[in-house]
Design a protein around this nucleic acid. Structure first.
Lengths: 138, 138
DNA sequence: TTGCGTGCAAAGGTTTTGCATGGCA
DNA sequence: TGCCATGCAAAACCTTTGCACGCAA
């Protein structure tokens, strides 16, 4: 498929397995490093960065940029969801506690098509974050 | 007003003046450093960072994060827009040309009440920016 | 065997912090 | 005068790059 990724290394397999095991969750590069270190099977940080770049290109994971100074988050995309693609995950960030909430919601998905049709604006859910105050903090 | 910002220093005034003079444009910290260095009135980088943080808190400027590895962009918010703010105005930012689009739309306003009712999340429309690609750029 | 993948070390760039000095009120 | 703001230097942070070695095909 991808021109870059020709080999299927042990590290790549382990990374994909791990991501598949935490569906719908956001993980950072450091999370992955810690995990693999924890189970004794250390994978180099550089390798994780490079594999993540490949996996994003291949559409296997999504990359989310929440804030300039927080590390990027990655999320495995289930195979069934490849169809609707793009990503139907929306993010809410609490301004008080910093908590990140990810929503999978049909009604929110309609925002995208509304912006598309009425305002000729193609929304990028990977970059868009709703800021506000979460349940616990108000 | 704000608890932090009590003093009105020369640097703060100059920063606000500069931002007012480039409405609708997005400028980085380095842009500002270069500008003030260019006109002989150097302002410390640290000061700019700290004043920008204050101005964002005060709702006088918006902060945009286009990409994790590019510097953050700031944009002055016109005073007329302060008035409606809160509930009426939504912002769309084009990732390609950087254009900022202001929308006044009932349907988008429903997002706020939806998030409130269904997800117990109080949206802050002033801080929230929809990222995507505008009409002209696709 | 070929050449991509790996991982260490180091660099790159943005942003934050410590601390002494300077300036607003 | 009392604090806050400033700014230099240095640190912290995430991410990328160089390069030699190792491994998949």
């Amino acid at each position: 498929m991808a021109a870059k990724g020709k080999y299927n290394t042990k590290q790549r397999s382990e990374l994909i397995s791990y991501l598949e095991s935490v569906p719908g969750q956001h993980v950072t590069i450091s999370d992955m490093c810690d995990y693999f270190e924890g189970i004794g099977s250390g994978i180099g940080r550089t390798t994780i960065y490079r594999q993540m770049e490949r996996l994003v290109d291949e559409g296997i994971v999504n990359k989310y940029i929440i804030d300039a100074n927080s590390p990027a988050c990655f999320e495995y995309i289930k195979k069934e969801e490849h169809a609707d693609s793009e990503s139907d995950c929306f993010h809410c960030k609490c301004e008080k506690c910093g908590k990140l909430i990810h929503l999978h919601c049909d009604e929110l998905r309609m925002i995208k098509s509304h912006l598309e049709k009425r305002h000729s604006f193609t929304l990028d859910p990977l970059r868009t974050v709703f800021y506000g105050v979460c349940e616990d903090c108000r």
